[in-house]
Design a protein around this nucleic acid. Structure first.
Length: 316
DNA sequence: CCCATATTTCCTGCTT
DNA sequence: AAAGCAGGAAATATGG
């Protein structure tokens, strides 16, 4: 065994990581492949969390919208979803397969056409960006949600807010804070067909996800990856800010801290060299088995398929 | 030891 | 340019 016991306090610039994993106490980290090596950006003491897509690298917020690439347009959209705590369906990403120049030329009407009720939000936010060049800290929020006035690195600010928010209020109490959510409700219910439990052959109901069923045929290493992911989603208070639902009823979710999830998975499997790269390969194998469905276009987003059980709110 | 399943590891190519 | 995504291929771990 060349594994080295290391405590998370060694990674002193990662308060979130420490908090998340403190329950686990010590973590086995391979000295040649720990977080410090895999995620240099985590160690810069700043952009510690990839809460929203990615700030390091592309830095759309430092570029005038006019010059955004399609990718940066999507990052902006994603960011608006994040900061306004909106469901993904509030903004039809496909409608924004355009670059910054095109985006800037759109009228309010066109925005509304493309994104419905959210169009207004997008439009006014973009106007703000256009006239201010650089992004002020307050532009990240639209009119209707939590206002933050601190002058800090936006990425830090946002992750801090989201993390704290998750810690303080827990998952269940989100709604009252977020009237922006309600303004999307109509849209969501229109675009979301009602759902019947897709079960046909399997009449077995495992209300609780305790894996001790007599029908289990092969379960080599205890929990499967998808169950592990599901359980993180189902216990947000235990693993805050790692993965979040994008659309609870449809089973769409998104990794917020992909590498942290990979580390956690690796820990469970006693594999300290687990990475998101490898974890995601395993996730992709689930497509064929219909445990997951593809969600294309959006990074780090997955959707439970018909063979995934136990993730619905009231599953039978 | 063999077999199947469920990853894990590595890789090339493509997209954002 | 860095991160993700797609899959192929091969290796590995585990239980039967």
């Amino acid at each position: 065994m060349d594994k080295v016991e290391a405590t998370w306090t060694g990674v002193c610039c990662l308060p979130m990581q420490i908090m998340i994993l403190e329950g686990a106490g010590r973590m086995s980290i391979n000295s040649s492949s720990n977080l410090l090596h895999q995620q240099p950006s985590w160690t810069d003491g700043y952009s510690t969390c990839n809460v929203s897509s990615s700030f390091y690298g592309t830095q759309w917020h430092e570029i005038h919208p006019q010059y955004w690439t399609k990718f940066q347009v999507w990052e902006w959209l994603q960011h608006l979803l994040d900061t306004n705590q909106l469901d993904a369906n509030c903004i039809p990403f496909q409608e924004f397969d355009i670059n910054g120049e095109h985006l800037c030329s759109m009228s309010l009407q066109e925005f509304t056409q493309a994104a419905g009720t959210a169009g207004q939000l997008l439009y006014s936010n973009l106007q703000h960006l256009k006239w201010n060049g650089q992004c002020g800290s307050d532009m990240y929020q639209s009119h209707n949600v939590i206002v933050k006035t601190e002058q800090t690195d936006p990425s830090l600010m946002v992750s801090w807010k989201e993390d704290n928010y998750l810690y303080d209020s827990g998952y269940g109490s989100t709604v009252e804070l977020l009237d922006s959510k309600t303004f999307c409700r109509a849209q969501i219910s229109m675009t979301t067909p009602s759902h019947q439990p897709p079960d046909s052959s399997d009449v077995k109901k495992t209300q609780d996800h305790t894996p001790k069923s007599h029908t289990k045929k092969h379960n080599p290493r205890g929990t499967h990856l998808w169950e592990f992911i599901r359980d993180i989603l189902l216990n947000p208070e235990k693993y805050p800010g790692l993965i979040k639902w994008e659309d609870r009823s449809e089973g769409v979710f998104r990794f917020l801290k992909s590498e942290a999830v990979a580390q956690l998975w690796g820990k469970k499997k006693n594999n300290s060299s687990m990475t998101y790269e490898k974890l995601s390969r395993a996730m992709r194998y689930y497509y064929k088995r219909e445990i997951l469905e593809r969600v294309d276009g959006r990074r780090l987003v997955y959707k439970f398929g018909k063979n995934a059980r136990g993730w619905r709110e009231n599953e039978n």
